[in-house]
Design a protein around this nucleic acid. Structure first.
Lengths: 246, 246
DNA sequence: GGTCTGGTTGTGGTCAGACCAGTAGGCTAA
DNA sequence: TTAGCCTACTGGTCTGACCACAACCAGACC
């Protein structure tokens, strides 16, 4: 209870959090490691157990550690879910953020497709091809079609073999799921969209196969632009059955 | 204390967290709103106050609410710091992630510069110009030079007027700060870098002024590629005084 | 000798009640 | 009317306790 002098200015929670952060960042606590028990931590830092739990809970929602009931607290490998939580909340409070998030998604995918041109392997090509085929098969179905579309774009990012891009894309894509579906509903109204969807994805696929980053980027960018255009047309009144706000 | 039946299966923390999330996502709790006191929340949900604090702390690290000492807990507009925390931890445990994060940064900036070409206003141009001038002035200083470099790139993103891109860039850039500085240390060793740094940024600036997205994107991309090349050369042994690992 | 069973110890999960230190706002006194 | 005080309320924290279960170890049983 007297080690509290170690970190003078900090409040209880900050003290514990800083203590753990330091070890986490320094690498003395690595994924898989088990923390000392809450009680030990409490006496070690001269704070009460509830405070320790606050800090552990904070690290939990950040995806840094995992509290296992009656087992202990272990360090985990950070994963996407945190960002998902954050963006979910953030989006809920700023609905107009959707277009903005879309910009970020375009950013990620256009970079990903460039990397994919360099790094994609056979397995990636196969995944892309399967997704492409699925898009053709499900062209008339809203749900399955949206899923196929999503899978194709996700396959691009996966093919980039960049964890950071994958993580970011995963977070952003989650928010745009509705967008995907509502865009799919446009298919019923704009028959020309079928051609657009199938041919565009085909061209994107071809560019990746050709390992041509510039062409892939440009094609993908154009793909997004056309999608925007369709949605815009829907909004301005060429159609009424859809609420393509996203 | 009997409302606990409302959410049967959930543990205490989950109950409180779910309760608040529901209201947050539904919009009945908006930024600026003040939550009821911890004590009230505790009795309302039939849990103890430490549990309520865990939930509030969780929301705090997610940047959703802010706990103000002796004032109360208020809902905030989500901001960057969360992602910063997350990425900081994530990076610390995967040092090899640096190159990967750099890819994401390139993604964000290249998209941002395209938007900037469309959306930049006079103030943005001025900010860019100031940053450009600063780069020239501080070309021989490691710290100030890195800062100027950072400011210029940040000005690009700001000029895109996209909050999501700004947020993501802010998180990523924080991680790459060291990288910036260590790159700057190369300047002493590679005199040709001075020209590269000044002229490249100048060209980027010009492309934005010209509102030419394609040229801006291409120029910026090339800028990053050349920077990579310098760092690569430093690593393979043309120089020894730097540890250009980032 | 080997296996199964029991208790002991330790873990997270939670609670109740208490104290402190400031804030805000009403109330009192000038 | 106004200045200042005072109380109620807030977050911040601590203490000590209880529960349910997991892991471990030792003894009993086969």
């Amino acid at each position: 209870m007297e080690l509290k002098r170690a970190a003078e200015g900090e409040k209880g929670f900050e003290k514990v959090f800083a203590f753990l952060r330091e070890r986490l960042l320094a690498g003395s606590l690595k994924p898989g490691d088990r923390l000392i028990s809450e009680r030990e931590l409490a006496t070690l830092l001269g704070v009460s157990r509830p405070i320790v739990r606050e800090a552990l809970r904070a690290l939990t929602v950040l995806g840094i550690v995992e509290i296992r009931d009656r087992i202990g607290t272990v360090v985990t490998r950070p994963d996407v879910s945190v960002l998902n939580d954050f963006f979910t909340f953030a989006l809920a409070q700023q609905a107009d953020m959707l277009d903005d998030v879309m910009q970020a998604r375009v950013a990620i995918e256009c970079q990903a497709i460039r990397l994919a041109c360099e790094r994609a392997n056979i397995a990636d090509f196969e995944r892309l091809q399967r997704a492409l085929a699925k898009i053709g098969e499900t062209i008339d179905e809203a749900d399955a079609g949206g899923m196929a579309d999503f899978d194709f774009h996700r396959a691009i990012v996966v093919a980039a073999h960049s964890e950071t891009l994958t993580v970011l894309h995963g977070s952003l894509a989650g928010l745009l799921t509705h967008s995907h579906r509502s865009r799919r509903e446009l298919v019923q109204a704009f028959p020309s969209m079928k051609t657009y969807l199938i041919d565009d994805h085909r061209r994107i696929f071809d560019a990746i196969i050709a390992r041509d980053p510039e062409r892939a980027d440009a094609t993908l960018r154009k793909h997004f632009a056309i999608g925007d255009e369709y949605r815009r047309r829907a909004v301005v009144g060429d159609i009424d059955k859809t609420s393509a706000s996203g």
